[in-house]
Amino acid sequence: MPYDAMSDSSDEDLLAAYAAGEPAAARALTQRLGPKAFGVAMRMLKDRAEAEDVAQEALLRLWRAAPGWRAGEAKVSTWLYRVVSNLCIDRIRKARGGHVDLDAVAEPPDPARSAEQDLQETARGAALQAALDTLPERQKQAVILRHLEGLSNPEIAEIMDIGVRAVESLTARGRKALEGLLGARRAELGYDDD
C-alpha cells in the first residue's frame, strides 16, 4: 500500500499492516504517533533529551507489541499515551530520588508567588506550561491529556488506570489551580484585550 493511501487508515489498521511487514505503515505510524508521544513526554518532563528517550522507548515497545496486537482490545494511541505517561512518571520519581505519592493532592500554589516566578515568561503557551509544572503530577497529567491532547475522559481514565469520575475530579482541581495561577497574568499577557 502506498504511503499516501495510508493517511486515511486507522492506527489499528496501520499497526496490522506494520506487523504484516508493510514498510509504508512503519513510516506512516512513526509520522503520526511519534510527535504525539514526544509532545506528551515533553510537556511532562520539560526536557527534550529525556522526552526523546521516553518517546523512543514507547515506540519501540509498540513495534514489538505489533505482532501480537489484538484488534479491538485497545486503541493504539491510548496504549501509547499510557506507556509514555508511565515512563514519564517513573523518570520523575527517579529524578526526585524516591517515592512520590501520586494520589496526594497538594493545595494549589500561591498564585502571587508563581506569577512572580513566571515573570520571565512572555509567551502565553510558555506561561501555561509554567503553570502546569506547578501542579501535582496526576493533575498535570490529566489536564495535559484532556485539554492539550484533546482526549476524552474515558480514554484518560484508561491511560491513568482510574475511574472517569476521578479524571473529572483531577481535571477540575487542575483547572481551578490554573485559573488561580494564570488569572493574575491575564493583563500582562494581553488577554484582557481579547
Binding site: G34, F38, G39, M42, A51, A55, G125, Q129, L148
Partner: peptide, 8 residues
Amino acid sequence: GRAEAPAP
C-alpha cells in the same frame, strides 16, 4: 498551549 505544542 495547543498552538505551542512541543514538536520533535
